[in-house]
Design a protein around this nucleic acid. Structure first.
Length: 425
RNA sequence: GUGGCUGUAGCUCAAUCGGCAGAGCACUUGACUGUGGAUCAAGAUGUUGCGGGUUCAAGCCCCGUCAGUCACCCCA
């Protein structure tokens, strides 16, 4: 223990147990994404620093990304997000792609931040985007994808909701309150924080940032107005589309949702666990209009969202929604009785594999209790024994590990017998 | 980047005022020389994160450092 080299800060080891969960999540993402016709894609895990600097400003990249110089002296960044790669790859094939583009991806990302609950330095993220359509109905589709996912992992509308707002609506309201355009960003940040801070602290903070008392009062009224969405044609259409898509139970209007990102221009949304211990967003996204222009492409509108695996994992664990998987993918063990019968066991295992059964053969003659214990710990269902008695008669002992019953049968009948046990509940 | 808390056996954690480093689970062996889970018995296990300091004596106090964790910040 003492001299084992430490893992890199903020990384997670995926032992088979955790890897099974990751694979399970991946399979659900695939199923949900593909049910809406999204194509899987991926970009490189490393990109030039310029790609991110173009969009987010160099400070952010240098301080919160992993950046290193390659041997040629170029600055390389471990990707902290996927959207710039998406913009770059779309822009490079802008004239040949069949729009609207619907793409999804699941892969690793890195951010050089201080780890805490729900935040690691290496994490996996699911991204889904649609480009080439600018409509509230397209926004609704992405929200429906997100809702379909929540449903697929067992999160009901009582557990998690997608909160929706619209930036254009909020900006119009800010204007109506006499908040100057150059103040919008700061006020957006303020709005974003309104749920996280205590009320009086928040108000003091608001006044400090230059809002008048009337403006503050107006802002508070605004943020409590659950019907505000009716003033936005885009949101009215969005909610109508969500209803048609059958996911309205998962979605609520919430004027507090702004999202920090500069590039969102219209609809924005975030999914939250309603009652759990984590306050962080499970997923978040929105409409962006100018992304491609920033990497040198023609202007193209898009909408998309991203979901990290870390917060989701915490939520699912708290809710008991992560299924358990047997440790071994092979649920059948062929034991090795002794040295003289070793290869008989190997041959039996090979036979069963030819019959399409996943089989582990114990790799050496060991005491049977040890071999059975191994089968038990690996969550196996069937154990097979060829001892001297069985060998003489061309037979095999087949034991159902769950019921504890066993029978001695002819070797040719072993495969069907094993399959029967595996098929039983 | 700022602040709080925590580092003791593989894991979860005890250890009184600074006075012999322990328990449960897991592990190994046996009860049971052809059968796992259950039970019983026995056994093994430590650079108390690391480095320094104070002290007759440090897991405990002090300084530093590393790691974990929580909050702030940020959240692409």
């Amino acid at each position: 223990m003492k001299n084992i080299i430490q893992p890199v800060k903020g990384t997670r080891d995926f032992y088979p147990e955790q890897m099974a969960i990751r694979a399970w999540l991946y399979s659900i993402l695939r199923q949900v994404s593909e049910s809406f016709g999204y194509q899987e894609w991926d970009g490189p895990f490393i990109e030039t620093m310029e790609l991110y600097a173009a969009k987010s400003g160099e400070e952010l990249v240098k301080e919160q990304s992993f950046v290193f110089q390659d041997r040629g002296g170029d600055f390389i960044t471990l990707r902290p997000e996927l959207t710039p790669s998406l913009a770059r790859m779309i822009a490079a094939r802008q004239n040949e792609l069949a729009f609207p583009v619907r793409w999804w991806s699941f892969g690793p990302f890195w951010r050089y931040e201080r780890p805490q609950k729900g935040r690691t330095r290496e994490f996996f993220q699911w991204n889904a985007d649609m480009l080439g359509v600018n409509s509230p109905e397209a926004d609704a589709e992405l929200i429906a994808v997100a809702a379909a996912f929540l449903k697929a992992v067992g999160l009901t509308p009582g557990m998690a909701l997608i909160l929706v707002n619209n930036r254009r609506l909020m900006e119009a309201e800010f204007d109506a309150l006499g908040i100057l355009p150059e103040k919008r960003l700061e006020v957006s940040g303020l709005v974003d924080r309104s749920n996280k801070m205590e009320v009086d602290k928040w108000e003091a903070y608001a006044l400090e940032s230059g809002l008048s008392r009337t403006q503050l009062a107006g802002l508070k009224t605004l943020l409590e107005n659950k019907e505000l969405w009716r003033k936005s044609d885009e949101l009215v259409r969005l909610f109508a589309a969500l209803k048609a898509l059958g996911v309205e139970d998962y979605v609520r209007f919430d004027p507090n949702i702004m999202r920090g990102l500069l590039y969102y221009t219209g609809t924005v949304f975030e999914a939250f666990d309603l009652t759990g211990g984590v306050r962080r967003a499970i997923l978040g996204g929105g409409r962006y209009d100018n992304l491609l222009a920033e990497v040198g492409g023609e202007p193209l509108s898009g909408v998309g969202f991203a979901m990290g695996d870390v917060v989701l994992g915490i939520v699912l664990r708290e809710r008991g929604l992560i299924p358990s998987f047997p440790p071994s993918p092979a649920l059948t063990l062929v034991t090795v009785f002794d040295e003289s019968l070793w290869l008989d066991s190997y041959a039996l295992a090979a036979d069963l594999r030819r019959a399409g059964i996943a089989v582990t053969c114990y790799p050496e003659p060991a005491k049977l209790p040890r071999q059975f214990k191994f089968a038990d710990r690996m969550g196996m269902r069937v154990a097979l024994v060829i001892g001297p008695d069985e060998a003489t008669d061309g037979q095999v002992t087949v034991k159902d590990l769950r019921s504890g019953t066993q029978e001695i049968i002819q070797r040719a009948a072993v495969a069907p017998a094993v399959q029967r046990i595996l098929a039983s509940e």
